[in-house]
Design a protein around this nucleic acid. Structure first.
Lengths: 137, 137
DNA sequence: AAACTCTATTCGTGAATCGGAATAAGGTTG
DNA sequence: CAACCTTATTCCGATTCACGAATAGAGTTT
């Protein structure tokens, strides 16, 4: 092997790669307390189910999350809670950069597009029927 | 542009993306006390100068580092020291995963890893003639 | 069994990334 | 000026990524 890159550094880079998409950061955020069901993630993130599943696959292959079946549904957990520390640190960094640059640009107003895109598997935010959200109702 | 993703999450993902390459993690590691000259990075990482410069451009565009000319040379610094905390956390995670999977790969211990920050290790690979290494000769 | 629900995977395409080679650009020295 | 040193950029091919669409499992209900 030509490259003298320590295995740890390679692995750290792979982890960072798995964290390098907003949807995956949001997913990990949702897994904080007690994990989350896939249907919950699709409801909260407002993305198509297939897309959520694809991002979950990335997180699985990076060994950042675990998946267990519970009958018809699947619940995901973070494998090592330390990954949430990294997520937090990234968010801290992001906020500090925003403050430093006084960037008040926003990407809002996209919620309206939810109504326009009546696509197939897309679900609306806030209407989750996953076991956990159900028992809280 | 996807859904109503908070700006800070998008930014956090961009930062993670910038960290998602071993060379860039190594570069940031080398920038720990007092920054580093480009020629030093090329000597330590053992990569072509153009490649180092490309990775530095990625780090610059992510606002993670700053570059100042000093005559003929350029010295880079981390813009916000907190990014080094993220790097450390990523390395911790990587090591914990390695232990969990009982990799028989030869991995450096934490102690040695901390040693990467020392000046003594700077001359491990190739000879560097950057101003700092010169005055320490 | 069929029908249904929830999740995972495959496929195709456009975009982004990586790295080497070559070259350009900024700065110094003779 | 020319020659040189250090760093940045461009071009290009190969690889990987992201997403929608469609389809394929896995499990339940009727």
């Amino acid at each position: 092997m030509p490259n003298g890159i320590p295995a740890e550094v390679k692995e750290a880079a792979r982890i960072a790669r798995a964290l390098s998409h907003p949807a995956r950061l949001q997913i990990l955020n949702e897994l904080r307390d007690g994990g989350a069901y896939v249907m919950h993630l699709t409801a909260v993130l407002g993305r198509p189910q297939a897309n959520i599943s694809q991002h979950l696959m990335v997180l699985r292959e990076a060994d950042l999350v675990t998946a267990e079946r519970e009958g018809m549904t699947v619940i995901y957990h973070v494998r090592n809670p330390h990954v949430l520390d990294v997520v937090d640190q990234l968010l801290v960094l992001a906020r500090e950069r925003a403050e430093a640059h006084r960037m008040d640009d926003v990407m809002v107003g996209v919620e309206e597009l939810d109504g326009l895109r009546g696509k197939r598997q897309r679900r609306r935010k806030g209407k989750c029927r996953c076991p956990r959200c159900r028992e809280e109702g």
